[in-house]
Design a protein around this nucleic acid. Structure first.
Lengths: 199, 199
DNA sequence: CCAGTAAGTTACCACGGGTAAGCTACCTCC
DNA sequence: GGAGGTAGCTTACCCGTGGTAACTTACTGG
C-alpha cells in the first residue's frame, strides 16, 4: 500500500505561511482574477475551506500577501534615506532603493498591479505611506513651504516613480540608475528653485 | 389591459449607444467587478444575450466604454497645447486641460480606475498615448536630448499628473490650477537645466 | 486510555458570465 | 395585402467559482 491519506496536520502559523507563499505564486502566475481558490488550495495540498478559516475570503488572502510587501518597501526606502547626509542624496538613494526593491521582488509587485479593487485600495495605502515619507523628506529641503504644497510635490514624485518603475518593467534596457536620474533631472532643480521662492 | 410586451425593436447603432450609456452608469455606480451584466441589461430594458451579441463579453463592453474617453482625452489635450505659443505654455495648458477634462468627466475616469485587467490594459494604452504626446512636446524644448531621455521625462510627467489627479479627486480643496502649478514647480525648472546640459 | 478540540474534509449552495435554440416584430417584394 | 426572410430579442440553460454547513479525524493533556 502506498501512504494512504498521510494527512499531516500542521500548526496554524506554519499553515498560514504556506498558504501565503502559495497564494503569492498562484496569483502572480495567473493574475488575481483568473486564479481560483481551489488552485491555491491544491498548491498547498489542502482543501478550500482551510483557506477560508485562515483568511476569510479571497480578498482577505490577497490583502495578507500585500501587507508583507508594504512593510518591506517602507523599511527598504527608509533605510536608504537614513544612510545619506544631504537631502538631495536622501531623495536619490531612497528613489534608487525603490527601483531596486521592485527589481528583486517582481512577483509581489505584479500582484499589486494585477487588478482587483482590494489591491487597488492596498496600493493606495502604500502610496499614502510613500507620499508622507517623501513630504517629510521635502520639508527638510523647503522648510517654508505650505503643507499642501509639500503634499503636492510628494504626489508628483510618487506618481513619477510609479510610472518609471512600470516603464522599466516593460523596457529592460532602462537601468535603475537611469530611471533614478530621469526623476532627479526634472525634480531636483525645480525643487531648489521652489524652496527659495516659497520662503 | 396594460401595454403587453410593447417590445419595441431598435436599430443596431442606437441600441449600442443605449447599452454603452447604461454600462457607463452601472459600472460607475457599483464598480466593474460588482456590477453584473443583468443589471446593465435591465437598465437598458433588455435581456443579457443582447449585450453579448453587441459587445461579446463583459470585458468587451468595458473596453468599448473606455475607448470613447480615450479619444476625447487626446483631443482635449492636443487642442490645449495647440492654443499656446511657447513650449512652457504648451505644457502648462495641456496639463491644465487634462485636469479639467477629468473634472467634467468624472464617471469615465472612475471607471478606468475601478479595477479589472482590461481596464488596466486600456489605461496603459492611454498612458502610452499621453507619454508620446509629451515626449514630442519636450523634444521641442530639449532638441539635443536622447530619445530614451525624452521618454523617461515624459514618464515622470504622466505619472505625476495621474497621481495629482487622483489626489485631487479625494481632496477637493486642491484646485486644478494648484495641481498644475505643483507639477510645473518641479518639472519646468529641471527641464530647463537638463535641456542645456544634454546639448 | 480517553475525552476535547483544533485541523480538515465532503458535499453543497448561489450567483454571475456566457451560450444554444427558438420566437417575433418589422421590412420587402411580389 | 400576404409570404417569407431576417435582424433583434427572449427563454432556458450550463458551468466555474466564491463561500459555507456539517461532519470526521489527528493530535493533546490529563
Amino acid at each position: 500500500m502506498e501512504t494512504r491519506t498521510p494527512r499531516r496536520r500542521v500548526g496554524r502559523a506554519e499553515r498560514e505561511q504556506q498558504i501565503l507563499d502559495a497564494a503569492l505564486a498562484v496569483f502572480g502566475e495567473r493574475g488575481y482574477q483568473a486564479a481560483s481558490m481551489d488552485q491555491v488550495a491544491e498548491r498547498v495540498g489542502v482543501t478550500k475551506p482551510v483557506l477560508y478559516t485562515h483568511f476569510g475570503s479571497k480578498d482577505g488572502l490577497l490583502l495578507a500577501c500585500i501587507t508583507r510587501a508594504r512593510a518591506e518597501l517602507l523599511a527598504v526606502t527608509s533605510e536608504a534615506a537614513a544612510s545619506a547626509g544631504a537631502p538631495e542624496e536622501m531623495l536619490r538613494r531612497s528613489t534608487r532603493a525603490f527601483f531596486d526593491y521592485l527589481e528583486r521582488n517582481a512577483p509581489a509587485w505584479t500582484l499589486l498591479y494585477s487588478e482587483s479593487s482590494v489591491a487597488g485600495e492596498a496600493l493606495e495605502g502604500i502610496r499614502a505611506q510613500q507620499t508622507d515619507f517623501i513630504a517629510a523628506l521635502l520639508a527638510g529641503q523647503a522648510p517654508h513651504a505650505k503643507p499642501q504644497q509639500l503634499q503636492g510635490w510628494a504626489q508628483v514624485i510618487v506618481g513619477a516613480c510609479e510610472r518609471l518603475a512600470h516603464w522599466r518593467s516593460r523596457d529592460r534596457t532602462v537601468s535603475a540608475e537611469q530611471a533614478t536620474e530621469y526623476l532627479m533631472d526634472l525634480v531636483w532643480a525645480g525643487l531648489a528653485c521652489a524652496a527659495q521662492s516659497s520662503g
